[in-house]
C-alpha cells in the first residue's frame, strides 16, 4: 500500500447493484405518483369541465403547479410541511409534490378528453336512457380516452423524468445515486451514460408506441 490515502476508488460491480436499486426507487416513486396523480387528475378534469366557476377557480389553482418549477415546489413543500407540524421523509414529501404536479397536468388532459366527446354525443347518450354515470362510463370514457391517451403518456413520461428532481430532497433515486457514485469514482461519463441509458430504455419504447398508436387511431 502506498502511504498516501486514495480518495477515489474505481467503478465496481457493486456500484452497478447500487444503481439498480436506485433505479427501482425511481420506478416506484414514478409509478405511485403517476397512478395516484392520474386518478385525482381525472376527477379534477371532470370538475373543470362541469362548471364554469370550477374551471375558473380550480383552473387557476392548478395553473400554479404548471407555472412554477417543480424543483421550487419540492423545496417549498419540504420546508413548509414541518411548519404545519408534518414530519415527512424525503420520499413522502417528494411523492406528495409529484402526485399533485401530475394531477395538475392530467386534469388538463382529462378536460381535453371530456370536451373532445362533444355535447351532442352526450345528449344522445342521455336521451337513450343512460344516467349521468353511465354516460361517463360508456360514452365519454372510451371516446375521450382515445383522444387524449397519447397526451397522457407524454405527461406520465414527463413525470418519470422529472422524478429525478426529488434527488434534491435527498431521496436516493437513480440520479442521486449517480451523483454519489460520480463523486466517489470520478467516472462521470460512464455513470451518467448508465443512468441515461436506463431512462432512455424506459421512455423511448413507450413514447414510440404512443406515437404509433396515435397514428393508427387518427386514420
Amino acid at each position: 500500500m502506498e502511504s498516501s490515502a486514495t480518495y477515489f476508488s474505481g467503478f465496481s460491480l457493486n456500484d452497478l447493484w447500487f444503481l439498480g436499486e436506485a433505479a427501482l426507487r425511481t420506478l416506484w416513486i414514478s409509478f405511485l405518483a403517476i397512478s395516484i396523480g392520474s386518478l385525482i387528475g381525472i376527477f379534477l378534469g371532470l370538475a373543470l369541465s362541469v362548471s364554469r366557476i370550477f374551471s375558473f377557480t380550480l383552473g387557476a389553482i392548478l395553473d400554479i403547479f404548471r407555472s412554477v418549477p417543480l424543483i421550487i415546489q419540492l423545496v417549498l413543500f419540504f420546508n413548509f410541511a414541518p411548519i404545519i407540524g408534518l414530519r415527512l421523509n424525503p420520499f413522502e414529501a417528494g411523492l406528495i409534490v409529484l402526485t399533485v404536479y401530475t394531477s395538475a397536468y392530467v386534469a388538463n388532459v382529462a378536460r381535453g378528453g371530456i370536451e373532445a366527446v362533444g355535447i351532442p354525443m352526450r345528449q344522445a347518450a342521455r336521451s337513450l336512457g343512460m344516467n349521468y354515470w353511465q354516460d361517463l362510463r360508456y360514452v365519454v370514457w372510451p371516446i375521450g380516452l382515445r383522444a387524449v391517451f397519447p397526451a397522457w403518456v407524454g405527461v406520465a413520461l414527463g413525470v418519470m423524468k422529472d422524478s429525478a428532481l426529488v434527488s434534491i430532497l435527498g431521496y436516493v433515486e437513480l440520479l442521486k445515486a449517480s451523483q454519489i457514485l460520480m463523486t466517489r469514482t470520478q467516472e462521470a461519463i460512464l455513470i451518467l451514460s448508465i443512468a441515461g441509458a436506463f431512462y432512455f430504455a424506459l421512455s423511448y419504447p413507450i413514447s414510440y408506441y404512443a406515437t404509433r398508436l396515435e397514428q393508427r387511431w387518427s386514420k
Binding site: A164, L165, S167, L192, A195, Y199, F200, Y204
Partner: peptide, 23 residues
Amino acid sequence: IELARNTPALLQLFFFGFGLGAF
C-alpha cells in the same frame, strides 16, 4: 432528438457539466 426527449433535463445538464469535465 430522441436523447433530448427521453432523458431527464437534469441528466443532460450533468452531462454538460460533469461529463465534459471528465475530459
